[in-house]
Amino acid sequence: MLSAIFWHHPLIETAGYFSVVILCLFVSMVIFEIVTKYKNWEEIKKGNIAVALATGGKILGVCNIFRYSIEKHTSLVEMLGWGLFGFTLLIFAYLLFEFLTPKFKVDEEIAADNRSVGFISCTISVGLSFVIGASIS
């Protein structure tokens, strides 16, 4: 009985959700690093604002999806499953953005520090995270 109280204490639950989401965020950034043609952290280190915008939008998007998942789902496993499903949709949206812009290559423009494309990428990631989050909750 004491262990049940311990695991359901708000501080313990918060630490658990936080830890799992940080791990998922790390994994999602690795996956985005594989999906994009540029190296996110190398470009950010060089001062590439477009990459920083696009990466920041992805981070905010992933965190927002998990926010919705935490709010709605009562178990850590359920939250994780729906959060990962939402993240998969966000990856799909990024690939769709590249496909739907045949006049230029999104990754090449972001790598070249085209801040307009970086901003649109950020906006798409954040905006769709609200739609994805609402649908998984």
Rank of each mutant, 00 (worst) to 15 (best):
G118R: 07
E42P: 06
F92A: 12
L76C: 00
V51S: 08
I110G: 06
I120E: 00
I65C: 00
I34G: 07
K46S: 14
N114S: 08
T88P: 05
M29V: 15
W41P: 05
G118M: 09
A111F: 01
Y68T: 01
E43A: 14
K103L: 08
F104A: 08
G47Q: 09
I70P: 03
A111L: 10
N48G: 13
I34M: 15
L89K: 02
E109D: 04
P102F: 09
I124N: 02
E71N: 14
I44W: 13
L128S: 03
K37D: 12
L100Q: 08
F92G: 04
T123N: 07
E108T: 11
Y94G: 01
L60E: 06
K103A: 08
I49C: 08
E42A: 13
M29R: 10
W41Y: 15
F99M: 14
P102L: 11
I31E: 05
Y38N: 06
S28A: 14
I65V: 11
N48T: 13
S69Q: 00
T74W: 01
V27E: 08
V117H: 07
L96W: 08
K37S: 14
G118C: 10
F66C: 00
C122L: 15
K58T: 07
A50N: 06
T88G: 13
F130M: 09
S129A: 12
D107V: 05
S116H: 03
G61C: 11
S75F: 09
C122D: 02
V27F: 14
F66K: 08
I91V: 13
Y94A: 01
W82N: 01
G61Q: 06
R67K: 03
S28C: 12
I59M: 15
V77P: 02
F130Y: 14
L60W: 02
G47K: 13
F104Q: 06
A52Y: 01
F97L: 10
T36H: 14
R67L: 10
G56P: 14
T123Q: 02
K103R: 11
F87E: 07
T101W: 05
A52N: 10
F119E: 01
S75L: 04
M29Y: 11
I120L: 09
L84F: 12
G86C: 04
L60G: 12
V51N: 04
L84R: 03
A52E: 04
G86S: 05
S129W: 05
G86H: 04
N40C: 09
E108W: 04
R67C: 01
V106H: 06
S75P: 06
L76A: 11
K45I: 11
R67Y: 10
V77L: 14
K45S: 14
E33A: 15
V126F: 13
S121L: 00
D113E: 11
I91K: 01
I34Y: 15
S116P: 00
G83T: 02
F97Y: 13
F32W: 09
T123S: 12
S121W: 01
V126I: 11
A112D: 13
G61P: 02
K103C: 03
K46W: 11
T55N: 12
S121H: 11
I70D: 05
L100H: 05
I65Q: 00
V62I: 15
E43Y: 09
S116Q: 03
E98R: 13
E33F: 10
K37F: 09
Y68Q: 06
L76N: 03
F85A: 08
I49E: 05
K39C: 09
C63N: 13
L95M: 14
